[in-house]
C-alpha cells in the first residue's frame, strides 16, 4: 500500500534491519543491492535503509516484512523463537567452519527442503546466510577442554546453545547482546559464546582475554521481501531481484562476517588475548560431550513432523561438499 506522500519513484522500498548503520551488511550488502536495482531499473526502484531497529524490534523484523511495514527486512531467525525451527540445524556444533561456509550450507538446505521453504512462505526470501561460527570467549578462565567449561557462566546466543552449554556442564545465561560488555567486564558472566565478529562489532575485544575456537554454533540470518510488494514488480524486475540476491548475496554476506571475525580476533590479540584452537584430536572429546545435543535436535524435529534426520544427514554431506 502507499500513502499520498510523494515518492521519487514507482517502487520506493523501505529496507529495515537490526544492525547498526555502520555495519558492512548495510554499507556493503544492502546498499550495493539497492544501488544496483536503482541503476538497472532506471530509477523506477529507489530505497531507504532503516538500520538499528528504527522501525521495530529485531524479533519483529520478519513480521514487518509479512505485513508490509518493511518492504525488505533482515534479521536473525532466532530472534523470533519457534517460528523457524529447521534453520536451527546450523546452530548445532561443528557445522559451519566459516560464515561463507555456513551461508552456502543454509542456502543449499533451503533450496533442497520444501519444509524449510514452508517456514518462510509468508514472505519472499531473498537470501539466507550465517554469521561466522560462535566461539567461546572468556575474561579470566582459559578453556582448553570440555572439562574447563564446567560451572562457568556463559552468555548463550540461542535456546539451542543453552543445550550445548548445558551438555558441557556450563551455566547458560540469557541476556541481550547490549548487556554483554558490562557483564563480562564486571564478572556477571565468565564469558560468552559469540562469533568473533562480535569482538569487533560489539567492542567485546576490550574485555576478552581468552578465545577458544571450536565452531560451537552458528547464527542463521534471513533477508526477505514483502509478498505484496514483490508481486507489484514486473517479470523482468523480479528476475533482476533474484539475480542480485540468492546464493551470491549469501556468500558476500558471509564474507562480510568472516572479515569482521578476523578483525575481531586481531583486535583481541593486539589487546593481549590468547587464542586456543581445538584441534582434530581433541575434537573427539568435545564431540562426545555434545553427542546428546544432535540426537535431541533430530528427535524434536521428527516429533514436529519434519524430516529432521534427513536434514541432519544432508547437512553433514553439504558440510564436506561445500568446504
Amino acid at each position: 500500500s502507499q500513502g499520498i506522500a510523494l515518492t521519487e519513484s514507482d517502487h520506493h522500498l523501505v529496507i529495515s534491519h537490526f544492525l547498526p548503520g555502520s555495519h558492512p551488511i548495510q554499507t556493503d550488502i544492502l546498499k550495493e543491492i539497492g544501488d544496483e536495482w536503482t541503476e538497472e531499473s532506471n530509477h523506477s526502484i529507489t530505497y531507504d535503509l532503516y538500520p538499528s531497529n528504527a522501525l521495530g524490534n529485531a524479533g519483529s523484523q520478519y513480521d514487518m516484512a509479512v505485513t508490509g511495514e518493511a518492504d525488505i527486512a533482515l534479521s536473525v531467525h532466532g530472534y523470533s523463537p519457534g517460528r523457524f525451527s529447521l534453520v536451527s540445524i546450523l546452530e548445532l556444533p561443528f557445522f559451519a567452519e566459516s560464515a561463507v561456509h555456513g551461508s552456502k550450507i543454509i542456502e543449499h538446505l533451503f533450496h533442497e527442503f520444501p519444509s524449510i521453504q514452508k517456514q518462510h512462505d509468508d514472505s519472499v526470501p531473498l537470501f539466507l546466510f550465517t554469521a561466522d561460527p560462535a566461539q567461546l570467549v572468556t575474561k579470566t578462565k582459559r578453556i582448553k577442554s570440555p572439562e574447563d567449561v564446567k560451572g562457568l557462566r556463559i552468555r548463550s546466543p540461542s535456546p539451542l546453545a543453552n543445550e550445548i552449554l548445558e551438555a558441557l556442564g556450563a551455566v547458560p545465561v540469557s541476556m541481550p547482546m547490549g548487556d554483554v560488555y558490562e557483564s563480562m567486564e564486571r564478572g556477571v558472566i565468565d564469558g560468552a559464546m559469540i562469533p568473533l565478529e562480535a569482538l569487533y562489532n560489539y567492542n567485546l575485544h576490550e574485555v576478552t582475554n581468552y578465545i577458544t575456537i571450536g565452531n560451537f554454533s552458528t547464527t542463521p540470518f534471513f533477508a526477505v521481501m514483502n509478498k505484496h510488494k514483490y508481486n507489484q514488480f514486473s517479470k523482468s524486475e523480479k528476475s533482476m531481484i533474484h539475480e542480485s540476491t540468492g546464493l551470491e548475496a549469501a556468500i558476500k554476506s558471509g564474507e562480510v562476517f568472516d572479515q569482521d571475525g578476523r578483525k575481531g580476533r586481531n583486535l583481541a590479540e593486539e589487546n593481549g588475548a590468547k587464542v586456543y584452537e581445538v584441534d582434530k584430536i581433541q575434537i573427539g572429546e568435545w564431540n562426545a560431550a555434545l553427542k546428546p545435543v544432535f540426537e535431541t535436535w533430530i528427535e524434536e524435529m521428527e516429533k514436529e513432523g519434519y524430516p529432521g534426520r534427513e536434514i541432519y544427514h544432508r547437512a553433514l554431506e553439504l558440510k564436506e561438499e561445500l568446504r
Binding site: S1, I4, V14, G56, T67, E69
Partner: peptide, 26 residues
C-alpha cells in the same frame, strides 16, 4: 504514517508496536 506509507502499514504498526514496547526486557 497513513499519509506516508498507507493505512495497512500504519494499522499493523499500531498493533505490533505497543506489544513489542511493553515486552522489552531492558
Amino acid at each position: 504514517t497513513t499519509l506516508i506509507r498507507g493505512w495497512d502499514v500504519a494499522f499493523s504498526q499500531l498493533g505490533r508496536t505497543p506489544f513489542d514496547t511493553a515486552s522489552s526486557y531492558s
